[in-house]
């Protein structure tokens, strides 16, 4: 086996894993803070970046479109809290999951209705082609965009991990995730906290969407990519922010390596399902994910 080639594929996989981790981060954020598995995160990613590109097409410059989109995403988050989550407080996890599937449909439909279904390009001014000198010296293809994604993901993980473990808000969030009713009864302002979290998730979605959009164009398929964040999430454990990055790297690398080495034997396309099967195997060994908290169930 060619070691050089192996490393190339591995690095490519790890880099795409970072991108998955970015999307998965939004899921973890909401799950950790409210115990809701937000199936609509993919739709939010799509909606955020589509709106961003849409505003730019309307003639807004980059630095004006960004805050407008942020405001839009915050508003979306607040509305979600008001009309979807607040009436469903202390329902079962499954019910909340199904509600967010409904929410995903609403957001996708809105995005199509407002901005149309065309594929759009997004130019962030960050080049997505291999950096010349790095390729010449090591033979590995890494682009500026890859590095940006890595740095952004690392930063966001660090900030979120700090907020969750060190601040008062973070403690409140973890309490809410544990038990809605109990958190309410000790006086944690559920309304504000959820609004805040969903707004933050909207912003995380925008960041992830912008990086994805810059790579593969702003299109409907982004939602499918976001679905791949789910196995990343369960491998890492729903409740672990750093777990997301590790799991993202595992999924990205495994997916690319199997596609390159075993894909030709079966005609390719392994990438479509491998993350899910991988997730199942991880779960069989560690049902709470790599970094998740072990939940003991009693009668």
């Amino acid at each position: 086996m060619n070691v050089q080639f192996f490393i190339e594929v591995l690095v490519g996989g790890l880099l795409s894993g970072v991108m998955y981790a970015l999307v998965a981060l939004g899921f973890v954020l909401i799950y950790k803070a409210s115990g809701v598995f937000n199936f609509a995160q993919g739709a939010m990613v799509f909606f955020a970046v589509l709106s961003f590109v849409g505003f730019m097409e309307l003639g807004l410059p980059f630095w004006a479109a960004l805050p407008v989109t942020v405001v839009l995403m915050v508003a979306t988050g607040m509305l979600t809290e008001r009309f979807v989550l607040r009436p469903l407080v202390s329902q079962s996890e499954d019910t909340l999951l199904m509600a967010t599937i409904g929410l995903a449909f609403v957001i996708e439909g809105m995005a199509q209705l407002v901005w149309g279904v065309d594929v759009r390009r997004l130019d962030l001014g960050i080049r997505d082609e291999p950096i010349g000198w790095f390729m010449d010296s090591t033979g590995i293809l890494v682009s500026q965009l890859d590095i940006t994604a890595g740095v952004v993901a690392g930063l966001m993980v660090a900030i979120l991990a700090l907020i969750f473990s060190r601040t008062k808000v973070g403690r409140g969030l973890r309490a809410v995730a544990d038990d809605h009713a109990a958190a309410l009864s000790v006086g944690i302002p559920l309304k504000h906290i959820w609004g805040l979290v969903w707004a933050t998730a909207g912003i995380v979605a925008l960041v992830a969407g912008m990086l994805w959009g810059a790579r593969s164009g702003v299109q409907f398929a982004l939602i499918g990519i976001a679905l791949k964040a789910l196995p990343v999430l369960i491998i890492g454990g729903f409740t672990s922010v750093p777990g997301v990055i590790v799991a993202g790297l595992i999924v990205g690398a495994a997916e690319k390596l199997t596609e390159v080495y075993f894909g030709p034997m079966v005609g390719g396309g392994i990438e479509g399902w491998l993350p899910y099967v991988l997730a199942v195997f991880f779960l069989l060994i560690r049902p709470e994910g790599l970094f998740g908290e072990k939940i003991i169930r009693r009668v």
């Binding site: 789910l230 392994i270 479509g272 399902w273 779960l283 049902p287 994910g289």
Partner: peptide, 26 residues
């Protein structure tokens, strides 16, 4: 048998994607 709830929901996506892929590829 090992996992419940949300974890299971995501695991069942494996069947969805794997079966359709297998029928498509072979």
């Amino acid at each position: 048998l090992r996992i419940r709830g949300l974890y299971l929901a995501v695991a069942t996506l494996a069947s969805q994607f794997f079966i359709v892929w297998a029928l498509d590829k072979f």
